[in-house]
């Protein structure tokens, strides 16, 4: 029996997280990829290595609809998996309870067909467990896995199922930007509350642009209204694992660190040499961000770096 993977979509297109979840799930068996969205997203999914077949279903976004869709397909699979995104978190526990399965979520390492590692306590401990159930409902942290290769041409099957939802979708409030996807970016620049204003975040964005980086923020910066909520990194925000994270005016509270533990390299810019982030940073520059950022951005632009 194979693996059923729920494709992660963003505004009707295949999200970069999908290739990573597919790569993770491929360790468990041949993948049937469920795309509850437009045909073009199914076509993109069909190119991913490890996908045996794409199942194209009616566009569905709400949790109960997606859970019912997956539950209908579930009997044919030993593993049912999704990204540990807000969609995956919304849907998979609901599905699991429907199937009387205890799910295993936020998996960061696959040790066997039913052995996994997942972080607890905001990443301050790692739990290794065996899932003794006959079938498994799983979510993977996309940032912990490299993306699957392309070049595949899996067949696309259309599923004729109408899904009803007891809730009604009213409106999406999307943060429009051409900034790279935060959850899967290779370089991220993060700003804290000390950036001081939404205007101040323009300095963070300018540094990000010079590096082709995604932008992150602390909860304090989001709560203050300086940055949109989907930029929040941490225990309750996005979990990222970039090659490089530049933390600007961020103290390094453990709930923020929870989101950046997977970063290969951390650079901290902070006035306080004793800030917790400085203690874990690979490189620190002690000073005022308002002096440093314009200089640093100008210097990087001078050197012609682009993402």
């Amino acid at each position: 029996m194979g693996v059923l993977v729920l494709a992660e979509l963003d505004n009707g297109t295949l999200s970069p997280a999908t290739a990573r979840v597919v790569a993770a799930a491929a360790k468990l068996g041949a993948i049937d990829l469920l795309v509850a969205g437009p045909r073009a997203a199914a076509e993109a999914g069909a190119t991913l290595a490890g996908v045996a077949k794409v199942i194209l279903a009616t566009e569905t976004v709400l949790a109960d609809g997606l859970a019912n869709l997956l539950a209908g397909l579930a009997p044919g699979y030993e593993h049912i998996a999704a990204a540990a995104s807000t969609t995956g978190k919304d849907v998979m526990p609901r599905l699991a309870a429907q199937l009387d399965i205890q799910p295993v979520t936020d998996i960061v390492a696959i040790l066997g067909a039913n052995r996994f590692t997942r972080p607890i306590y905001a990443g301050n401990a790692l739990q290794t467990l065996t899932d003794a159930q006959a079938r498994h409902v799983l979510t993977f942290r996309a940032s912990a896995f490299r993306p699957a290769a392309g070049g595949n041409a899996a067949p696309i099957e259309t599923l004729d199922a109408t899904v009803a939802s007891a809730a009604r979708f009213i409106a999406a409030h999307r943060t429009e930007s051409d900034i790279p996807d935060l959850a899967t970016a290779q370089i991220v620049v993060g700003g804290g509350v000390s950036v001081g204003s939404a205007e101040g975040f323009k300095l963070i964005e300018a540094l990000g642009r010079s590096l082709g980086a995604a932008i992150g923020a602390t909860r304090a910066a989001v709560d203050a209204g300086y940055a949109p909520n989907d930029w929040q990194v941490g225990q309750t925000g996005k979990i990222i694992a970039p090659d490089l994270y530049i933390a600007v005016g961020i103290s390094g509270a453990l709930q923020h660190i929870a989101g950046i533990q997977g970063a290969k390299k951390i650079i901290a810019i902070n006035t306080d040499a004793e800030a917790p982030i400085v203690k874990i940073a690979d490189v620190a520059l002690i000073g005022d961000l308002f002096d440093i950022l314009p200089q640093l951005t100008a210097e990087l632009e001078k050197r012609g770096l682009k993402g």
């Binding site: 963003d10 709400l62 807000t86 009604r168 979708f169 009213i170 999406a172 409030h173 909520n229």
Partner: peptide, 14 residues
């Protein structure tokens, strides 16, 4: 109103 990966969304439920 729900906080989701792309921003926020509003849904109605009975």
């Amino acid at each position: 109103t729900r906080e989701v990966d792309y921003g926020r969304e509003t849904i109605d439920l009975a």
